[in-house]
Amino acid sequence: MIKLSDSLSIQITIHKYGSHAQPPKTPQSSKKAATTNPLKLLPISLKTSKSQNHSSKDSHDPQNLLNQTIIHLKSASLPLTAVTLPFFLHPVAAGGQFGILEGRSFALVHPIVMSGLFLYTLYAGYLGWQWRRVRTIQDEINELKKQVKPVAVTPDGTPPAEPPKLSPVEAKIQQLTEERKELIKGSYRDKHFNAGSILLGFGVFESVFGGLNTWFRTGKLFPGPHLFAGAAITVLWAAAAALVPPMQKGSETARNLHIALNALNVILFIWQIPTGIDIVFKVFEFTKWP
């Protein structure tokens, strides 16, 4: 049974707060709300300053700046391509089907590269000759040693007190020995091998590119001294490189043939220069930039 005092207190509470009102919160519940929602207790100005500081940090973040830059570049790439594409596809030569491939820029690539390859051929030949000297000097030293007279000794078999002066043959042996040591330090064998590999790769590529460029510009090839000499030079490069395996096995015949083929290559290169200059003049006459 409910006591009269209890029912009276309930009625007083309902009358004070209303039928739908909640009873007042205890201090413990208010403390809990304050701890769970600390931002609700902060002033509005403090919240705003924190959000502004956060946005300013994002604006100075390098990763964020990089992402924004990439987005801007992506948006600008399409109009930039639309502007530059007609320039590259514009017909600049007689035919015009291949655009810039028929222009003067691509036509001058071949003579410029081949001029560099000619000088590089001479450099590769110098390296090969120096490596050959390493081998031939040793043969000379061995032959000179056979001419050295034995050192005179006393009757009891001991050498003389004062060493004899060097003979001209011994002085030559000493000179060649020092020269060979210096050549070995130069690592001419590896340098010559690397130079030959580069010359073979770039030479064959540029020879084919020269013929293709002529066809791009004119629609045909022109059989003549320059074309035939260029084809012969390309074949000589390949033939000289094919002799490397027997040369590494010590074949003197392969070495001599390697030298002969490369010497013929240089002669053809020199003979081809005047015809190449004539072609360059025609390029300037019949083509336009780029």
Rank of each mutant, 00 (worst) to 15 (best):
N142L: 13
F106I: 08
S105Y: 09
S56A: 11
H110G: 14
S49N: 06
L80E: 00
F88E: 00
S115Y: 03
Q130T: 09
I112A: 15
L89R: 04
R133V: 13
L85D: 03
L66W: 05
L4G: 06
L4Y: 04
L127K: 12
L65I: 15
F118R: 07
F88V: 02
N53W: 02
L127V: 11
A82M: 08
A34W: 01
T13G: 09
A124R: 09
L41I: 14
K25I: 06
L122G: 15
G96I: 08
S115W: 00
K50A: 11
Q28R: 09
S59R: 04
P27I: 14
R104S: 10
K47C: 04
Q68F: 05
S29D: 09
H110Y: 02
I137V: 10
S49V: 05
S45N: 07
S55F: 15
L117C: 08
F106S: 13
R104W: 03
F106C: 11
Q52E: 11
E140Y: 05
P86E: 02
T69G: 02
I12N: 06
F87V: 13
I14E: 06
I141C: 11
L73C: 07
I70T: 06
F87S: 14
E143P: 02
L4R: 15
S77N: 06
T136I: 13
A34N: 13
R132Q: 15
Q28Y: 03
P38N: 03
P111V: 12
G99V: 08
Q11N: 14
I112P: 01
L4C: 08
Q63F: 10
I71S: 08
Q28H: 09
Q63P: 00
V109M: 08
K16V: 06
Q138A: 15
K47G: 03
N53G: 10
V134C: 13
P38Q: 05
L80I: 15
R104Q: 09
L108Q: 01
H90C: 08
Q97M: 07
D58N: 06
G95L: 04
R133N: 14
D58G: 04
K74R: 11
S29F: 00
S29Q: 14
L42M: 14
Q130V: 12
S115N: 07
P91L: 01
P43A: 14
V83W: 02
T121V: 15
K32N: 09
R132E: 10
L127F: 12
S5W: 01
L117N: 06
P91E: 01
L66K: 12
H90G: 03
V134P: 02
P43Y: 04
H20M: 03
T136M: 11
A93N: 10
Q138D: 10
L42Y: 14
T13N: 07
S45A: 13
P86H: 06
V92T: 13
P111T: 10
K40D: 05
K25R: 12
N67C: 03
A76N: 05
L8F: 12
L80M: 11
Q97W: 02
A107G: 12
K31P: 00
S29K: 09
L127P: 02
I100R: 04
Q11Y: 07
H60I: 15
Y126D: 05
Q52W: 00
F106Y: 09
N142E: 09
R104F: 04
L66D: 01
